[in-house]
Structure formats: structure tokens, C-alpha cells
Design a protein around this nucleic acid. Structure first.
Lengths: 139, 139
DNA sequence: CATTGACCTTGCCAGGGTGGCAAGGTCGAG
DNA sequence: CTCGACCTTGCCACCCTGGCAAGGTCAATG
């Protein structure tokens, strides 16, 4: 199976697969006589794993560690759990940050008439920082 | 006032200010006889505006439009409001996506013993996609 | 057999937004 | 004069993906 088929089966793109290979996330694929990369069932399985891990929001670095654990038959599930929990914490932080931003912005928007006149509390808020208090949203 | 002072006053870095100038977000600053950029009160005001808009999560492109509206005395507040509301929608989408990821992950983590044994529902979930259903979290 | 079109290969450039580092000019104080 | 702090420009890095180019390969047509 060539890279195009592997891509369609896994949901990744050929570009991503090649990239993952160059950065060492994937072991170099076997090559046919023509130089094309060849993928077998085991490879497809791994690509699908990566795709799902990416869809769950894990960074490539985290995916790399997940892959290592996945392939380690001696792994402790606690290690996987720790990785996942750390990621959940990341997500929580980001969510809290975005919610803070949204609420601040909603507050400003709620005070704005939204008509054809130039007066606008949103701009005033950005100007003076009066309404946009500290919600710790400094990335 | 040189760029360093302007940076400290606005909360931006000198690097950012120069970058904003190169991409046209800021008009080229005036220069002293030595070639150093010079910033006045009006410039500081603008830099602070940008800083706050960035802190609110607006992209540089959105900041650019906000700046234009800010400086347009004929603006309609409706335009500002529309921009802000679009940004709120963006935030809502991102929040929903992250919450979906978090919940899926929490579900998996909740089933994982987290001990020294290798058996791990998290990895099984990533392997087969059994627990990570469609929560529309495909960016 | 020749051509076509789909596929593969590698490599480079782009983005957004910031940090880092280099090599040089300039200022003010010791 | 010298030293350190500051300024200047320019390039490279990150993360991850897309796009485009120039070329090789394959299978199926005419």
C-alpha cells in the first residue's frame, strides 16, 4: 500500500505522514523497488492511532510519548493516565482562559448600542482598560 | 522616548513593536537623528490599545480593523460590535471544541486504573476509536 | 509504442506571533 | 577612552500544515 492509500485509510494526509517520518515520530517506512513508501496493516494501525491522538488534542510530542507507551508491553497504565491527566489540565487552563476572554468581551458588547453612532464602550474599554480587568488571560 | 521605554510602558516588547511596524499594523515611527525610533504620548496610547486588544484574544488582523475603527471618528459602533461578536463566536467554538476533548479524555481517564499494570483503556480508546466518538472536534 | 493522467519522490516557501542571536552603531557615565 | 546599556537590521527557530515546483513511475488508454 502506497502513501496515498495509507493517508486515505488513516485520515491523515500524505504530507503529514512524510512529515511525521522526518521528525522521527514514525520509523522510516519500507520502500518498494521504485522508491515508494510501503505501508502494511501494522503501519495503518499506527497511523490511525496517531490520527486519533491528534484529534484528541495531543501535541506531536505527546503523541510520541503515547506511541512509545502503546508499543511498550511493560508499560504501567499509570504513566498513560498521567500523560492524559496532564493534557486535561492543559485543556482546563485553556478553557478557563477563553471563557474569561469571552465573558469580558460579552460584558463590553452588552454595553454597546451597536447603531450608526460612533460612541462605543468596546473601544473605550480597549482604550483605557476600564472594563477589561485582570482575568489572568495573559498567555 | 525610544522603543525600549515605549515597550515597557505599553507592556509589549520592542521586538513586537518593530514587528507590528513591518507588517503595517503600525505606521512607521518617527526617527531621531541617530536613526532610533521615537514614540510620543499618542503612540503610547495606540500601543497600549494594541496590547489590550491582543490580551482580549483578537488576532493581529482583527486588531488592525479595530485600530482603523478606533481612529475613524465617523465609525458606526455597530461595526465594532459586529467585530467583537464575531470574535466571541470564535471563542465559543474553540471553547466547545476544547470542552468536548476534555470530556472525552476524562471519560477515558476515568476508566483507567492507573497502576503498574499495562492494561489501559486510554490506549485502547486511541487504538480503536471506541470511546472517542464524534464530538465534532475536528479543527 | 506513445501519450495521458494519477500517483509518487524530494525540496523549498508560507503562515502567525514570538524569541533568540549576530554584527554593528550610539549614547551616557565613569 | 572604555564599558555597558541601548538601538539598528537581518536571519533562523519554533509548531504544523498547505502549496507549489520539478522530476520519476505506474497503469491504462489511443
Amino acid at each position: 500500500m502506497n502513501i496515498g492509500q495509507a493517508a486515505r485509510h488513516s485520515g491523515l494526509t500524505a504530507k503529514m505522514i512524510r512529515y511525521y517520518e522526518t521528525i522521527g515520530l514514525l520509523a522510516p517506512a519500507g520502500r518498494g523497488a521504485n522508491g515508494y513508501r510501503r505501508y502494511g496493516d501494522k503501519d495503518l494501525h499506527q497511523l490511525a492511532f496517531i490520527k486519533r491522538a491528534r484529534d484528541m488534542g495531543f501535541s506531536l510530542d505527546e503523541v510520541s510519548r503515547l506511541l512509545a507507551l502503546w508499543q511498550d508491553r511493560q508499560r504501567a497504565s499509570a504513566d498513560v493516565k498521567a500523560l492524559a491527566e496532564a493534557h486535561i489540565d492543559d485543556l482546563e487552563r485553556k478553557i478557563a482562559e477563553l471563557v474569561g476572554l469571552r465573558d469580558t468581551l460579552r460584558e463590553l458588547v452588552g454595553h454597546c448600542q451597536g447603531d450608526e453612532r460612533p460612541d462605543c464602550p468596546i473601544l473605550r474599554g480597549l482604550e483605557s482598560g476600564c472594563c477589561a480587568g485582570d482575568h489572568g488571560a495573559d498567555d
